[in-house]
Design a protein around this nucleic acid. Structure first.
Lengths: 155, 155
DNA sequence: CTGCAACGTGAAGTCCACTTGAAGTCAAGG
DNA sequence: CCTTGACTTCAAGTGGACTTCACGTTGCAG
């Protein structure tokens, strides 16, 4: 398995920490590419692991797969990101992370402030402010992704 | 409208910054309660606004509606949270926010570190680490909720 | 050459927080 | 009384990132 350069989907999944179904999904979505055996089974080149790492990192920063697709699309001829591409994209990511952190910190500080006043006055309260960006989306929890929420179910 | 203590759904929706459909949904889910006119229309007591503020605040902290339901359930006889309840719950929320902030900061620092090494080495890279809590959920972006993601679509 | 784990496909299902649609009813100003 | 806008219900749809299912095929160790 190390002797050959092409890995079957199960091996890739195991190494990347993904389900094979996720890999097939990514391939359908054009996020990764691979070859096939004569029998039709997927064989991925080793660098797909790097590409998957890139995808996961992007998700961790808060990008949707759509945005990941766009990011990968900026790379010439769809190559796997090099260190230089990486550094360039990371500048944007860092800004996003900074914004996210700032948002959560504002919320936390609002929590303290609002406890003091006990207001919960809608629209004027930092914690429940419906005019914030946080309130603009149609669905999902306002600030935390399912991943972190599900980890601790009890209030 | 101010003379009477009971508000129609549209009024509540407007004041709370929600759609009426969301209010009906919350009522179906048992998160809020109200009375009805003889004709069957909803009339909400004024304190429902406070309850809605509570719900929104909880969502901002990252709670699912399921968790909000549980939180409201800890209050005796389903009353609207008082300042004391509020203070108690906020202690838990603050911890969550702190954790979330810490997580994002770790990610940001990992970004810097990993740019330096250019590794993206899967499992060992802070940015793409599939063993993190961030990687454990089935769906959605790993760290940022749709609300904040959608605001800036371009990479 | 055989057995069986790993692979293939397409369609449908899941989760969450709502929204949308269709079809009909109520309340209040003129 | 009439019109009109706000309201009612129930069922189905949305979006994102996958997973699950049902059923058939491939590849390799023994």
């Amino acid at each position: 398995m190390r002797s050959d350069d092409l890995l079957p989907i199960g091996e890739v999944a195991r190494r990347a920490g993904l389900a094979t179904s996720a890999l097939r999904f990514y391939e359908r979505e054009g996020l990764v590419h691979g070859e096939r055996t004569s029998g039709g089974q997927r064989r991925y080149p080793r660098n797909v692991l790097r590409r998957l790492a890139f995808i996961r990192a992007a998700q961790n920063v808060g990008l949707s797969l759509e945005e990941v697709r766009a990011a990968l699309g900026t790379l010439p001829d769809g190559r796997t990101p090099t260190r230089a591409d990486w550094a360039q994209l990371s500048r944007v990511w860092r800004i996003r992370l900074d914004e996210q952190i700032a948002g959560l910190m504002a919320l936390r500080d609002g929590l303290t402030t609002c406890i003091g006043c006990g207001c919960l006055s809608l629209r004027r309260c930092a914690l429940s402010n419906p005019d914030d960006a946080a309130g603009e989306s149609g669905s999902g929890a306002r600030f935390l992704p399912p991943a972190l929420r599900r980890a601790r179910a009890a209030l």
